[in-house]
Structures are given as structure tokens and as C-alpha cells.
């Protein structure tokens, strides 16, 4: 396999890239009902909730993959999944804030 094979179809999972709901279910193994419930509980948000079919930002793929993993490994229903995902996202935000503060802190004063 050469490096050139990877040149195309390389996507950053962020807000610049969108995927369809069917791609989301196909890629993660979540059902359409589970995706709908995760949206209802606020764990993931479609780009436009009123549009049909739904489209999601690439970063939702990461969240949905985590959801699928947690569902399989911990036997969680959508309600518990959404709660866990929201806590995880809060942790991510706080860790990012902490990283930013640490980056601003002079190294000599760091432990």
C-alpha cells in the first residue's frame, strides 16, 4: 500500500465536513431510532434539525462511534448513552480549557 492511496478520501472529523444520517448509521452500527433518540436527548445535533434527511457534522461521527462502543460494551440504552456522552463532552471541554491554561503558564513555574 503506498502513501498515495491515502491522498483521497481523508477527512478531518470536524465541523467543516458533513455526513448523511445513513452514512452515520452504516458507519457506526447505530440504528436510525438510536440516532433519533440521541438527537432528542441532545447528545448529537444535526446541522439543520428541520431538514430531511438529517445531515451531521463530521465530529458527530466520533461521538456516534463512542456511543456505539459504549452501547455494546456497557449494555446502555439511548437515555443512559446520551447522559454519558454529555458528561464525556463536558470533560473534553474542561480538559481543553485546562490545556489552554497550562499552555499559558510559564514552564519554569510548572511542576
Amino acid at each position: 500500500m503506498t502513501a498515495d492511496d491515502f491522498e483521497s478520501d481523508t477527512l478531518w472529523l470536524d465541523t467543516h465536513h458533513e455526513i448523511t444520517v445513513s452514512e452515520l448509521t452504516q458507519t457506526t452500527g447505530l440504528s436510525t431510532i438510536e440516532v433519533r433518540e440521541l438527537v432528542e436527548y441532545g447528545a448529537i445535533t444535526p446541522v439543520d434539525v428541520n431538514a430531511a434527511p438529517w445531515r451531521f457534522h463530521g465530529q458527530c461521527l466520533s461521538i456516534a462511534r463512542t456511543a456505539s462502543r459504549l452501547r455494546d460494551d456497557f449494555d446502555l440504552d439511548s437515555h443512559a448513552l446520551a447522559l454519558a456522552l454529555k458528561f464525556m463532552s463536558r470533560i473534553d471541554e474542561l480538559e481543553a480549557e485546562l490545556r489552554e491554561l497550562r499552555a499559558q503558564f510559564p514552564r519554569r513555574l510548572q511542576r
Binding site: 481523508t10 477527512l11 478531518w12 472529523l13 481543553a96
Partner: peptide, 13 residues
């Protein structure tokens, strides 16, 4: 464009 914590998807690989 990479930085800490970013995720990259290589489709079909």
C-alpha cells in the same frame, strides 16, 4: 492542520 485530539478518517482504508 493536525493538532492534539484531532481525528482523521481515511475512508475505505
Amino acid at each position: 492542520g493536525a493538532t492534539n485530539g484531532q481525528r482523521l478518517r481515511l475512508r475505505g482504508k
